[in-house]
Design a protein around this nucleic acid. Structure first.
Lengths: 124, 124
DNA sequence: CTGAATCCGAGCGGATACTG
DNA sequence: CAGTATCCGCTCGGATTCAG
């Protein structure tokens, strides 16, 4: 695959990869992706479903995810406006790995809690 | 499982989950975990292997991951000092999901690149 | 309801210098 | 080599306000 790419092309691809990873490797993006995995949701529903996210960060992060083709944005031309958010096919694939992260977290809460106590004791 | 927990206990667990997720759901933590998945590394090796990470953020993030029982820190009492970092068992499990994220990114670079161009055109 | 815009504080993150 | 500490710009992120 990389055989058929010019050096400059390879470099741009790497830069893009880093940029994309930065976009999705943050708290809000991951939580939003994971939540949207449960199905289509409206803006307000998402705001309530994603624990702790603010109005602003939700809008901002959704814009990034939409641009990167992870999230679909469907606007209903009604009054008041209704906008449905859902995962694209690419987003759905990503979601399975994100969900695995969430599951891992839940499964290791207790284990980590103990690790922390041991660590904190050691540091006096 | 949650049947056997007091309400206060449940609440603390949820708070811990959120905190843990915040710790690992960020660029540097994920990149470090993924890199350490390839094997034990010294501080300087990691600093070179994790693209773009600074001395400071590496040390800071490693401390957090060590405290959360994701990363092992083995100090050799030699001069000059030698410190080996590796993933714990929990860290290894987490790594498989993190790696899946990295793979997803690489596989979708081109697709995302096109999605962005379409998005940017639409916004004029 | 969906969103963009603004203000503003807190924390990220780089550069640098300093210890053991 | 590994790590901490300091300085400092800049972005993150919350609260609020305004528009469609």
């Amino acid at each position: 695959m990389s055989d058929s790419m010019e050096p400059a092309e390879v470099k741009r691809t790497e830069a893009l990869s880093a940029e994309i990873f930065t976009n999705i490797a943050n708290k809000w993006a991951l939580l939003i992706i994971n939540t949207l995995g449960e199905g289509t949701m409206r803006f307000t529903e998402l705001c309530a479903a994603v624990e702790g996210v603010s109005h602003k960060m939700l809008a901002q992060t959704l814009r990034i995810l939409e641009r990167d083709g992870v999230v679909n944005r469907l606007v209903h031309p009604t009054v008041p406006p209704r906008v449905d958010y859902s995962l694209t096919d690419a987003g759905l694939m990503l979601r399975t790995t994100v969900n695995a992260m969430c599951v891992w977290t839940r499964q290791h809460v207790h284990h980590i809690d103990q690790a922390r106590q041991r660590f904190d004791e050691r540091q006096v």
